[in-house]
């Protein structure tokens, strides 16, 4: 054991060097970007990037495909919008309330969904999300088709006025980077190693004495909570919470972002989210063809490069990203 331990340590530093460099590049890019790109677009992309990272925590590291993550994203944006508008919460508290709400929803949905594996898990999460979508359509406080409009962005910690676009951007970028680091930390913790063990061989993980259901549920709640941060922030950015965010195409979109960027890669979901959001932005004039293009990307990814963009680059350069 003593012989192996230092070797492992050196492997780990070697591997993570590329990740540290990539993280630095990403942070620099986020500082430079608003000078070149419209901040509102960047904020949207960052919210979706966080959403995709949170989703990737489940599919990439536990091997659970949730087809119902719109449930947490959409409901978190409703909760955040309601808290900020009706209860008059400051923005940081609104996002935290949304996170707690999404975690609670994640606990209930997760407890039901982890009772089935594989393909059934995907169908159960999709069905639960659709149920909560219908609930959102009917519930009085979601505003039905109108959604919750003109949500005040408020003053962060009481003195930073988020109505200013650059202040809002800084807030979103910091929230994103913190959550990204948290996800990175989770993946590389002993807890994360157990999750990967479950992904690779669940019966073996059980035979080693791990209560895999608890680990899966914990991962599900974490993923839902982080999705909640993304959804809650998005409601403040756009000052709107609507049915779009809670409906099933949103669940499909986050799957697409993660698949395109690379399942189980740290940076893949971020890259995927930026590409898909940019595509929706610039191809909006083509109407329904966006849907077709998304379908084509799905098919191409599954048939030709299942590792996704970042996964392919990483294997080409033989580094870890």
């Amino acid at each position: 054991m003593q012989q192996i331990a230092p070797m492992e340590a050196s492997v780990r530093t070697e591997r993570s060097r590329s990740e540290i460099v990539a993280f630095m590049l990403m942070a620099v890019a986020l500082i430079v970007a608003p000078a070149v790109i419209y901040p509102l677009f960047l904020m949207k992309a960052l919210c979706f990037a966080l959403f995709a990272c949170a989703f990737n925590l489940l599919i990439g590291y536990v091997g659970l495909l949730s087809f119902g993550h719109a449930l947490f994203f959409g409901w978190a944006s409703y909760i955040s919008a309601h808290a900020a508008k009706v209860w008059g919460f400051p923005p940081e508290l609104a996002v935290l309330t949304a996170t707690a709400g999404a975690a609670a929803l994640g606990f209930v949905a997760g407890a039901i969904a982890i009772r089935r594996q594989g393909i059934y898990f995907a169908m159960v999460t999709l069905a639960l999300a659709q149920m909560m979508y219908f609930f959102a359509v009917q519930a009085p406080f979601t505003g039905g088709e109108d959604g919750i409009q003109s949500v005040p962005r408020g003053k962060l910690f009481g003195f930073l006025n988020l109505a200013d676009q650059m202040t809002m951007y800084t807030f979103v970028a910091i929230v994103f980077l913190l959550c990204f680091l948290l996800i990175y930390r989770i993946i590389h913790s002993p807890f994360g190693e157990v999750l990967k063990a479950i992904r690779e061989n669940e019966p073996r993980a059980i035979s080693l004495g791990y209560k895999t259901d608890r680990y899966k549920l914990a991962a599900f709640v974490l993923s839902a909570a982080l999705t909640g941060v993304a959804g809650g922030t998005k409601a403040l950015v756009f000052q709107l919470a609507s049915l779009t965010d809670v409906n099933w195409p949103m669940s499909g979109e986050v799957v697409l972002m993660t698949l395109l960027g690379g399942l189980g890669t740290v940076f893949g979901p971020v890259v995927g989210a930026f590409i898909i959001i940019a595509m929706q932005n610039y191809l909006a004039a083509f109407g329904q063809w966006v849907l077709v293009i998304q379908g084509v990307i799905f098919v191409t990814c599954v048939m030709l490069f299942r590792r996704g963009i970042v996964g392919e680059i990483a294997s080409l350069l033989r580094i870890k990203l």
């Binding site: 495909l65 995907a122 499909g252 966006v290 084509v296 299942r306």
Partner: peptide, 17 residues
């Protein structure tokens, strides 16, 4: 199995789109 689900989901998007 998940890849079959993802592929047919993509096909559904194409057809519906």
């Amino acid at each position: 199995h998940l890849y079959g689900l993802l592929l047919t989901f993509g096909l559904a998007l194409i057809i519906e789109g």
